[in-house]
Amino acid sequence: MSRPSLSFRFAFLLSLSFTASYSTYSSSSHSSSSLFIKPRSSSTNPPSPKSTASDLLSLLGTPQQVASIDPKTAKELRSCLKFLVPQSPSRIGPEFPKPSLRRALTLESSDSVHNLSWSEVNELVWWPPPPVAELARLAVDSGGDPDAIYLALDPTIIPVPDVEECKENRCELTRTPYGRCFINEELNAYLKFLFEVIATRGPSIGLTVSLSRFDFFHGHLFLATGTGRLGILFHAKEYPAYDKKVFPHNMGYCQIGSNVVYDDSMNFRNILWLAPMPSNSKDAFSAPGVLVVLDGHPGGIIYRDLIPAYVNYARTIYEEDLGDAVADVNYLNIGDAMPDYQIFIC
């Protein structure tokens, strides 16, 4: 989901300014009549510091980064993390996957995840195949320059076909009407793998998704602020069905025909993948890969601090808040009788 239009955000901010002005006037008027009332003693517990996207990324980073976070903030953030792959690897890496495991990953069938054991999937997230690790290092060594990622893309332009009757409903599903892929096929296979792992393991934490254009079909590739760490912020539940009582929000042509129910699983719509964090030593990494669902339930620190108020009904975290946006990664079913999912990087 892209950010709302400037006019919408301006209107929202304007309404806030009126509210603030009224609040200030009311407060000053009230204070004149309460000069002789004993003020309440200040609370002994200072308010919790506002967390940032950088805090979240640091918590999923190196031991040094974790130690830099306010302990109370770290505890609150941890309470809102639902790991699809355990955060702590069963062994110290990296140790690149065995050739047989890499072959299973590059199978044309989307069933490749189902051909892997639970521990094999974990290993592929913690310590991805060499092409993924090399791209992660390139991102960091470049200082977080998106051009480093663009150079790894095949220049061939691939038109995005009509997906699940988009054209019939005048739905422009992707950022551009064409996409690209990585030159290295193993990188494209790994992107497919991530989508399939999320869809397969999501129900274990309460996130059931369908790989469809209304629900789970895209993520946003970014380079983290300050470190250049490679990541993807996936968004599920993209177009919930309009419902006058439950979800009275018109989201445009792409919402038409949606069967996605707006319920508590909307809290889990932000899923974060981080590549292993390269260290200063060549071929060494200081933090493993991560795949985690960000719990945005009302009352939690992620809802309070990381989800903008003007879009909290959709529980959306924006990739620009995590770092420099590079491209959208779309996983689209372009098949007719049989499903045929392909990657389009736009």
Rank of each mutant, 00 (worst) to 15 (best):
H220G: 05
I205K: 03
K245Y: 08
L207D: 08
I198H: 04
H220S: 11
V290E: 01
G202P: 01
V261K: 11
G219K: 06
I205C: 14
T225C: 05
K282I: 15
S204N: 10
I271P: 02
N280R: 14
L211E: 13
P248Y: 13
P248F: 11
K244A: 15
S258Q: 10
S286V: 13
S212P: 00
E238P: 04
W273Q: 02
Q255G: 03
D283L: 12
A236R: 01
I232V: 14
T208K: 10
F216H: 01
T227M: 05
D215E: 02
F222I: 03
P278M: 04
H249K: 08
N259M: 10
Q255H: 01
A199F: 11
L211H: 10
F217W: 06
D243A: 05
G257T: 08
P203W: 06
L230Y: 02
N280M: 11
N280T: 14
F247H: 04
F217Y: 15
D243F: 00
A284D: 09
W273I: 08
Y253R: 15
A275F: 12
L272G: 02
G228F: 00
I271N: 00
A275N: 04
G257Y: 02
T208Q: 07
V197T: 01
G206I: 09
N250C: 04
T208M: 04
L221E: 09
K244H: 15
E238K: 10
T225Y: 14
V293E: 06
C254F: 03
L221Q: 11
G206V: 10
N270A: 07
S281E: 15
F234C: 05
N250M: 04
Y239S: 07
Y253H: 15
K244E: 15
L233Y: 06
T200H: 14
D264A: 12
C254I: 05
A275S: 13
K237H: 13
V209L: 12
N270F: 00
K282Y: 15
L207I: 10
S281W: 03
R201I: 07
S210H: 12
L291N: 03
M251T: 04
V290M: 10
P278V: 07
D215T: 04
V246E: 12
P248D: 13
R229F: 03
A224E: 09
S265T: 15
A199Q: 13
M266C: 10
G257C: 05
G202V: 11
G206W: 06
L233D: 10
V246Y: 02
N259T: 14
S212G: 07
N280K: 09
F214L: 15
K244P: 01
H218A: 11
R229C: 07
R229S: 06
P278H: 05
A287L: 14
K245D: 14
A284H: 13
S286H: 05
L221G: 00
S210I: 01
K245M: 06
L221K: 01
D283N: 15
R229I: 10
L223A: 02
M266A: 10
Y262E: 09
F222R: 03
A241W: 00
T225G: 05
I205L: 13
I198E: 03
A275I: 09
D263F: 11
P276A: 06
T225P: 01
P240M: 07
N259P: 00
Y239R: 07
M266F: 12
I198L: 04
A241G: 05
